[in-house]
Design a protein around this nucleic acid. Structure first.
Lengths: 182, 182
DNA sequence: ATAGATTTGTTTATAAATCAACAAATAACG
DNA sequence: CGTTATTTGTTGATTTATAAACAAATCTAT
C-alpha cells in the first residue's frame, strides 16, 4: 500500500491515545466525541473523517493490536514455544496502557478478550502435535479452546497485577505449559 | 487577537521542540532543515510557511521566551524583590531544557545571553532607588549593567549546574542581592 | 579547481483539517 | 409527560499542510 498522508497518521494517533487516556479516567460510554476531540487536540468534525463513531474508533484501535499480534506469528513459527513467546510478552509490556485499560473495563464493547482469544486460537491451529500419538483421543477444538483461554487468562492476570515477572520469564513458563497442551 | 488555527499551533510547537531536541544533540549550524522537518514530523516545505530559515525559527523561539519573561513584570511590580523573583525562577525551572540548551551552546546565533540581559535591564529601569540618597553618585547605566549581568550570570550558573537549589531559595538569595544593588 | 552530491528555497496541485452552522437524536430534569 | 439542554452527525466554504518537482546555492572530495 502506498504511503499514507502524514496528517492522517498524526490525527489517528492522537485520537487513539485520547481514547486510551480517557478510558483510564472514565467509563467508555461516558466519553463524548467532543471530549475525544479536545483531548486529541483535533476538531470534532475531523473524527468523522476517519471513524463512524466512538465505537468504530475503539474497534479500529483493537484491530490494530490484534493484527500486529497476528503478524508476529510469521517471525516466530520456526522457533520453539518459549523463544516464540518472548516478543509477545514484550509487546504486552510495551503496550501496557492499552491492554490494562482494555482488560480492566469489563463493559468494553465488542469484548476485547473474546477477540484476543479468537486471534490466539487461530495462531495455535498449525501447532498441534499430530506426529506423536501423545494427543490421540483429543480433538483440536478442545485443545485450542483449552490452550487459548489459558493463555488469555495468564495475560490478563499478568497485566492486572502490574507485570510481576519480566517478559522473558513469562515466556519461559507459559511456553513450557503451551508445549504440554498442544 | 483572534484565535490562531489549531494546525498552526501544532506545527509551530512541533518545530520548536524539534529545534531544542536537535540542539542538544549537535551544533545549531549542523542542523539541516530536513532534519528539523523529520524530527517535527512535518513536511520540509511547511517550515517555510512559518519561518524564513532555521535562524528565524530559533529567533522566534527566543523571542517567545523573552516576551513571556517580560510580561511577568506586570504581575510582579507591586511585590518586593524576593517575592517577585519566585515566578521567574519557576519559569527557568519549567523551561529548563530550553535555557540549558540556549546557554550551553555558546555559538548560538544572535547571542541569547545578550538578549536576556537587555530584557532584564529594561525591566530593572523603574526599580532603582532614587528616594533615599543611598545611590547618590551612582549612574543608572552602571547600576543596570551591574545588576543585569549579575542576574544573568547567576541564572547561567544555576541552569548549568542542574538547578542545585529550588526556585524559591534562589529567589530569596538573588532578591536580597538585587535589593542592595538597585 | 571541478565534478558530484546535498541542501536550500520556491512552486504547483491536491488532500486534509478547520471552523461555523445546522437539524436530528438523546439525555436530563422538573 | 413535556421541555430544555446536550450531544451527535453532516454540510460547505476556507485555510493549512502535503508531496513532488525544480533550479540555485552550498558542501565535499578528489
Amino acid at each position: 500500500m502506498g504511503k499514507v498522508d502524514r496528517r492522517i497518521l498524526k490525527t489517528q494517533e492522537s485520537l487513539k491515545n485520547a481514547v486510551i487516556e480517557l478510558m483510564m479516567e472514565k467509563n467508555f460510554d461516558d466519553i463524548t466525541i467532543q471530549e475525544l476531540a479536545d483531548r486529541a487536540n483535533v476538531n470534532r468534525g475531523t473524527i468523522y473523517l476517519h471513524y463512524q463513531d466512538k465505537f468504530d474508533l475503539l474497534d479500529q484501535l483493537i484491530e490494530i493490536h490484534i493484527n500486529e499480534l497476528g503478524e508476529m506469528d510469521a517471525w516466530a513459527c520456526e522457533l520453539n514455544w518459549v523463544d516464540a513467546l518472548v516478543p509477545y510478552f514484550e509487546y504486552f509490556e510495551k503496550n501496557y496502557l492499552f491492554f490494562s485499560t482494555m482488560l480492566a473495563s469489563k463493559g468494553t464493547p465488542s469484548s476485547f478478550s473474546t477477540r484476543l482469544l479468537a486471534s490466539f486460537m487461530k495462531g495455535f491451529q498449525g501447532e498441534i502435535d499430530r506426529e506423536s500419538d501423545r494427543n490421540a483421543g483429543l480433538s483440536d477444538e478442545v485443545m485450542l479452546q483449552y490452550a487459548g483461554t489459558a493463555y488469555v487468562g495468564v495475560i490478563e492476570w499478568w497485566i492486572r497485577n502490574g507485570m510481576p515477572y519480566p517478559p522473558h520469564e513469562m515466556a519461559k513458563q507459559v511456553g513450557a505449559l503451551l508445549e504440554r497442551s498442544l
